[in-house]
Amino acid sequence: MMNLAERHQLILSRLQRDQYINVVDLCKELKVSSVTIRKDLKLLEDKSLLFRTHGGATMNNPYTVDRPVNEKEKIQSSEKNKIGAAAAELLNDNDSIVIASGTTVLYFAKNIQPAINLTVVTSALNVALELMRESTIEVIQLGGLLRKSSSSVMGSYAEQVLQDFYFNKLFLGVDGIDLDFGLTTTNAMEAQLNRKMINAAQKTIVLADSTKFGKRGFGKICGLEEIDHIITDKGISEQIVKHLEGLGVTVTIV
């Protein structure tokens, strides 16, 4: 059986390789109890070597902070554009879709081909402005309380309007994807609106660059089992892909 130092070395090497580790998997590999592993993780966190999460640990700070949309748009811009282009390929003529807020879904809107006929409902002002110039795309802008940091609306009025629609697809941006906690955003009211969008859509497609994995925002949107498809970039770890596919989630890597 490994001693304390050997266990810690193995835990850190697994984190370097996979970005995230699960308590249950470590218990099986090291043949020790979950109590022992959780103590190990706490000791390593106290030394600022990792961050504990629900059911595991990560090397990246899992707690996201709200940033202005114009600042977020510049982060991972190349990856977001590729993700948006891949998402646009999923559209069919005469689809009725709902687009949530976020910078990655804005890149999706920029990649939608003008020849396609669509009905789009969106909470995002920048998405509506991007699409309104296309004659083949009918845009319905949700109303409600304006969240300036994301250039989008939220609140009960927007939620009520969604009750009158049913969509082929939802294209959803998120602030965090945690393998245990699920999808999150930094605002609880926005998370509530996103849940209503999921309920109104036949299929939920999440657009998220790889930096969003292992992160957790304040407001929970839903569990991973409630989504159908994630489009991300090649920075995602193989372990996370296997976990998602095990839940029945289609993963597209650009």
Rank of each mutant, 00 (worst) to 15 (best):
D228G: 05
I198F: 00
T211V: 06
S210V: 10
L207H: 15
M197D: 11
M197R: 01
I221W: 00
I227C: 02
Q202S: 14
A200K: 07
F218Q: 04
L224F: 02
F213D: 13
G214Y: 06
G219V: 11
A200G: 11
D209V: 01
G219M: 07
R195Y: 03
L207Y: 09
R195G: 08
N199F: 12
I221E: 03
K212N: 11
K215Y: 05
A208H: 06
A201N: 14
N194T: 15
G214L: 13
A200S: 12
D228L: 04
D228Y: 03
E226K: 00
T204A: 14
S210F: 09
R195D: 03
K196Y: 12
T211Q: 09
I227E: 02
K215N: 11
D228S: 08
F213T: 08
K220E: 10
K196C: 15
A200I: 14
K215E: 12
G223T: 04
K212V: 07
G223H: 04
D228V: 03
E226N: 01
D228K: 03
C222Q: 00
G217F: 02
K212H: 06
D209R: 06
T204P: 08
I205D: 04
K215S: 14
K212D: 03
K203C: 07
G214S: 12
I221G: 09
M197Y: 10
E226I: 00
Q202P: 02
L207P: 06
I198G: 01
F218P: 03
R195H: 10
C222G: 01
G217S: 07
K220Q: 14
R195T: 15
C222W: 00
V206D: 06
G217I: 13
V206Q: 04
F213C: 08
N199V: 15
K215P: 05
G214M: 06
N199M: 10
G214P: 07
N199R: 13
K203G: 06
G214N: 08
Q202F: 02
A201S: 15
E225A: 07
G219R: 04
D209F: 01
F218L: 13
K196G: 13
K220G: 07
K203A: 04
I198V: 14
A208Y: 09
N199W: 06
G219T: 12
Q202T: 15
L207G: 11
L224D: 06
K215D: 08
D228C: 05
K215A: 13
A201Y: 10
I205P: 02
A201C: 15
E225G: 03
G223C: 03
I227V: 12
G219F: 04
E225S: 06
T211P: 00
G223L: 01
M197T: 13
K220R: 12
M197G: 11
V206Y: 04
G214T: 13
L207N: 11
I227L: 01
F213L: 07
R216M: 13
C222P: 01
A200E: 07
E226Y: 00
K203L: 14
R216T: 14
D209P: 04
F213A: 10
M197N: 11
M197W: 12
